[in-house]
Design a protein around this nucleic acid. Structure first.
Lengths: 187, 187
DNA sequence: GAAACCATGTAAGTTGTTACATGATTGG
DNA sequence: CCAATCATGTAACAACTTACATGGTTTC
């Protein structure tokens, strides 16, 4: 049976993978996605906590409770040997297929003819801003953190695509400007 | 209330948008995503038919039944004036935010250290193949179909990102090769 | 004094996927 | 003769998001 959702991309595998790099709480796992990893996924607490509960039930991770004064107790999770084996197996189960892109921007621009000039310009400008932000975040992350081959690859790939997108969008904007000036000049 | 799912990316808006270009059946809507638009979304029939039913209930589209011999009747959908107004409004409700990327490939490569050399190489090769396929599909679509500004933009953007990804992946492969040769030469 | 951070968790709801149901026709 | 194409639709299920519940601490 071919089951699309059974591919490695799900929050459980993501959590398991991060825990293979070192122990962490649910809160800390979440935080790791706010940095340069954010362009891959930004899972919510509502999905991380249940994922960790299930991983524990399956024996793939374990946790110790660290009591804290005036705060809820911390649960520090770590991967078990079984979890590590499972992760390795899961990741290499099949060669990853195409990505799924969920882009409000592209969908909106697909119907560009229905948008006002102003809105389209705003959307493109905002998109350039977003990509710049992501690119900077990756560059920053690249400088500070000690990184392994995986992180290096993912960050490099993200950076390459961000830059390509920025270039494309700026060319597009330049093209629009040129077109407008021709119109203004009465061509 | 800020509701992420209320953004324009959902199958209903997508169907409505395509119907704004001309009438179509559910089956034909699906087909449009098999071409160069496929990199944005590949919705299943199980989501398209209910979407059309709901759009009809909301008065945003209407349909006429075309009887066919020895086949189920066709339902030919078209957008209503109300639907067109709704689409315009929906698309321009807010400037689109960041994309959500769902990538088995990046997630797998993020844990590259856990993968065998061979698997990693296969994954990268397969990815190059996939991007080439998408790029070709876009180039083909660009030649044959008459296109509006929206399609042109989306295809151009997709092509730029595909090419960037291919370049990155091939550089990466070349880097690996060079590294292996150094090792083989006893450096 | 408001906002952001720390810290975990549950319940309700949306969205979309896969699998099933049905079945003739055409092309290799 | 097997696969793909045409054609629509439902039911079961998975996955994730948002909102709610709780509440002290730190920073601007």
């Amino acid at each position: 049976m071919f089951w699309r959702g059974a591919g490695p991309v799900n929050i459980r595998t993501l959590c398991l993978g991060l825990l293979s790099r070192g122990e962490a709480t649910g809160y800390e796992i979440r935080k790791q996605f706010e940095g340069p990893l954010g362009y891959i996924h930004e899972p919510s607490f509502g999905s991380i906590y249940p994922a960790l509960t299930r991983l524990t039930r399956e024996g793939l991770v374990s946790f110790t409770v660290q009591a804290q004064e005036k705060r809820p107790d911390k649960k520090i999770y770590r991967i078990t040997p079984k979890g590590r084996a499972h992760l390795r197996e899961q990741l290499q189960e099949s060669v990853p297929g195409p990505d799924r892109l969920h882009s409000d921007f592209l969908l909106t621009m697909l119907f560009r003819d229905l948008l006002s000039e102003e809105f389209a310009r705003m959307a493109v400008d905002e998109r350039i801003r977003i990509y710049r932000e992501i690119a900077e975040s990756i560059e920053r992350g690249h400088e500070e953190a000690p990184h392994d081959a995986g992180l290096e690859f993912v960050q490099g790939c993200g950076l390459a695509m961000c830059r390509a997108a920025i270039d494309f969008l700026e060319d597009y904007k330049a093209g629009l400007e040129a077109g407008r000036q021709q119109v203004a000049a009465g061509e």
